[in-house]
Structure formats: structure tokens, C-alpha cells
Design a protein around this nucleic acid. Structure first.
Lengths: 215, 215
DNA sequence: TAGATTGTTAATCGATTAACAATC
DNA sequence: TAGATTGTTAATCGATTAACAATC
């Protein structure tokens, strides 16, 4: 693959995994790694690793392999993790709060700048040092502050009107935990879906299938 | 594809989506749907839908299409959602609590029967009507109660020993929210990973790439 | 130099799409 | 019967794996 071609989602989805394994190796003091070694560690293939990396550039050296700290830095740069995209989070329920507290935004290129909810009980409260604002203020907030992305932790039925406000304010990047299908309504948005219920259903299918074939 | 061949993960991962769209249609009173209509709603292709469904059986009728309630029931049965697999959840931190409160286990084939944590502050407390047990009791619990699956909401470094106890108790099915790679250590387990940090990194890559190409 | 390992091209494999005969 | 739409086979497309010349 030439460096200018569009990168496939299959490759993109493997990048965070390279990032994690290389970070661990780097922290363990590893200086070099061959595609064969890395493949063994990750349970993938040397061929795939070399193909994937060569989508972005020739980071290795023939006869030697890859310099671990250098490759780690390259992957970080490719992922764009040194950015500080401003993000707002919508819906401070159980899931929203867990996302705020659990996810390492700062080291993943994001800066969580505001939280919104419609529940008066939550408005004004504090989650990880960020005050929850009234969702009625969303539009005015987005027009007076830079917002690059929105994290949607709302129930499905609340997403549509909120997404509309965000879209009208020019926001095109969404981390979506609801089952509302943003790409069906807007065709110029970047959406990363996290569907916990779908994931659990997949597990249910696999356990069921396994029991049927093995018993 | 013949009905006896192994179903590919690509197909399996689409099943929950069919389930969702058919449930909605059913609730809206729809009685029939053609693969063309469904494809339009879902943003996929009629060909793919027919191929996918025919992995499991001929659920349609030529010249008519598919009976919505019947197809919904078939998909539910394929997913195995009417099962009640007993599951335990490990790690009642922010993420664990959100999972307990947010996920609809009952309608996804699971029954959450116990919560475990090592934090004395949490042990004995109550989440959604389930008392948090001391993780020291995990082994004895798993040997005296039926456990089909484990939901791992622990930090990465705590997973390994806990997974070992679970594996030794015969548990082979994991919903894993940590970055510990279970399939690298155990080769006969079913693992469904939810990697929130990876998902966010993917979003970071895409927003970065988008800004580079469009600006 | 010899050995190792990359970068890259070619071959294979799998998944998606297109086409159409079967049939309701 | 005519029209519609499935189930299924064939064609295409894309992703993974294998092979090997380049080169450190």
C-alpha cells in the first residue's frame, strides 16, 4: 500500500493495540523488536505488522527490526494522541459518570471541557472536578467555546435533538454510546460507536453456539 | 453458505443490529419487510441481508419478503437471548457500577448473580439490589454456584490472578473491559472485549486524519 | 561478508455485491 | 397469470498471508 492511499478501518482498529504493546515493551526497557517477535507477542502475523506499518512509512531497518521507543512515538503521532481536542459529554447518568472517571482522555488526544445533563438533581454537581451544566445551555456553550467532539452518553430517545444542536454548531465528531444511528441522519460525521448491549448479545450468541456444538 | 458451516464473526457482529431494527419495526406494528427495505433502513445492502439470514435458514418467502415478528423471533433465538446464563461481575469501580446499572442483562440472555470487589469500602454495599462480596470468596462462590460467564471490570493489573481463579473453576466465557489479553493466555475461552480507550484512540486518529486532509 | 529482517509485490483467502433462477 | 422477492450461485472486491529481492 502506498503512503497516500486511504487507510482501511481494519488497519486503523489495530493501531491502538500496537500502541499498547509498544508502550508496555518500551516501559519494560525493550530497545528493538522484529515483526516476528511482535507478532508472537500480539498473536498476529509478522506479515500483517509489516503491511500495517508500511501504510504510514518505513519505520524499520532491514536486518535489524524496529526501534521500540521510536516506533512507539511514530504510532502515537499517527494516532494523533498529542492533540488536545476539546470535547463535551452529554448525559451524566451511570454510564456518563463512569466514562468521565474511567477514560484517560488526556493521553488519548482529548480534553473534556464540559458536562451536560437535563436532570436538575445533577446540574451544578461536580464530576471529577467538572461542573455539570444544564443542557439548555448547550447551544450557547458550543457557540462561545471551541468544541471538537461530543461524547453521547444519553439514552437513545434523547440523542436526536441533542445531536441536532451539536451538528448545527458545527460538531462533526461523535463518540456514541447510544443506539441512535448518527450516520443514517448525517453523512459527513465521524462516529465511533460503543454498543455495550450489542457486545453482550454477541457474547450470548457465542456461548450458546458453543454449548450447542460441544454438548 | 450452507447452514452447517461456521458463521463468520462479520455476520455474528451484525446480528444484534438486525435484532434492534426488527424490534423497532415490530414495536411500530410492521408486519412485513423486504430485504431491500430493511437494507435501506439499516444502511446496508439487500444482498448482504439475504446472505446473512440464509446462514441460519430460509426465513423469507419469495415474492413477499420477511414476516417482521417471525424474523425478530428467529434472530432472538439465534442470538440465544432467551437463555439465563449466570454471570458474575468482578470489580465494582466506576465502570463496574455503570455496567451493572446500565446494561440490560436480562434481555440479553444473562442473569447477574454476584458482584465482587477487593475494596473493603465496597464489600457489603448494594448495587442494583446485589450485594458486593469480598473477592476472597470468589473461588468458594464459583465452586458452589453455577457460573457461566464473568464480566471483568477490573484494572488491567488485577485481572490475571482473578481470571486464573475463574478459569480454574471452569469458566470459559468472559466479557472483558480491561486491556489484559485473555486469549493470549487461554486458548479455549470465549472473550468479548470492550476497549473504551482503544475506541477513543480510533476516534482521535480519525479526527486528526480528517483535519489533515480537509484543511 | 554472512545473517537477518525489512519493504513490497504476488498469491490466497474471505467477505461483499451482483445476478438470476426458483417460487410465492 | 404477472409481479415481486427470495435463496443461492457467480463475480468482484478487499484484506491477509506468503514470498523474496533489497539492504542494513
Amino acid at each position: 500500500m502506498s503512503k497516500n492511499d486511504k487507510i482501511s478501518m481494519s488497519v486503523i482498529r489495530r493501531l491502538p493495540r500496537y500502541y499498547r504493546f509498544l508502550l508496555e515493551m518500551k516501559n519494560n526497557g525493550a530497545l528493538r523488536v522484529s515483526s516476528r517477535e511482535l507478532a508472537e507477542k500480539m498473536g498476529s502475523s509478522a506479515s500483517q505488522i509489516r503491511q500495517d506499518l508500511n501504510c504510514f512509512g518505513g519505520f524499520g531497518q532491514q536486518g535489524y527490526g524496529y526501534d521500540v521507543p521510536k516506533l512507539f512515538d511514530e504510532i502515537s503521532a499517527i494516532l494523533g494522541l498529542d492533540n488536545r481536542y476539546n470535547a463535551v459529554l452529554l448525559g451524566v447518568g451511570n454510564l456518563g459518570r463512569a466514562v468521565v472517571k474511567h477514560v484517560a482522555f488526556e493521553s488519548r488526544g482529548f480534553n473534556l471541557t464540559a458536562l451536560f445533563d437535563k436532570n436538575p438533581q445533577l446540574i451544578g454537581s461536580d464530576v471529577k472536578g467538572i461542573t455539570v451544566k444544564d443542557i439548555a445551555q448547550l447551544k450557547s456553550y458550543c457557540t462561545t467555546n471551541p468544541v471538537d467532539a461530543a461524547f453521547l452518553c444519553l439514552p437513545r430517545e434523547s440523542v436526536e435533538p441533542v445531536a441536532e444542536i451539536l451538528y448545527n454548531c458545527g460538531i462533526r465528531c461523535f463518540w456514541n454510546f447510544s443506539h441512535f444511528d448518527l450516520t443514517m441522519k448525517y453523512n459527513d460525521v465521524i462516529v465511533e460507536n460503543v454498543h455495550l448491549n450489542d457486545s453482550l448479545m454477541t457474547l450470548c450468541y457465542r456461548i450458546t453456539e458453543d454449548k450447542l456444538t460441544h454438548n
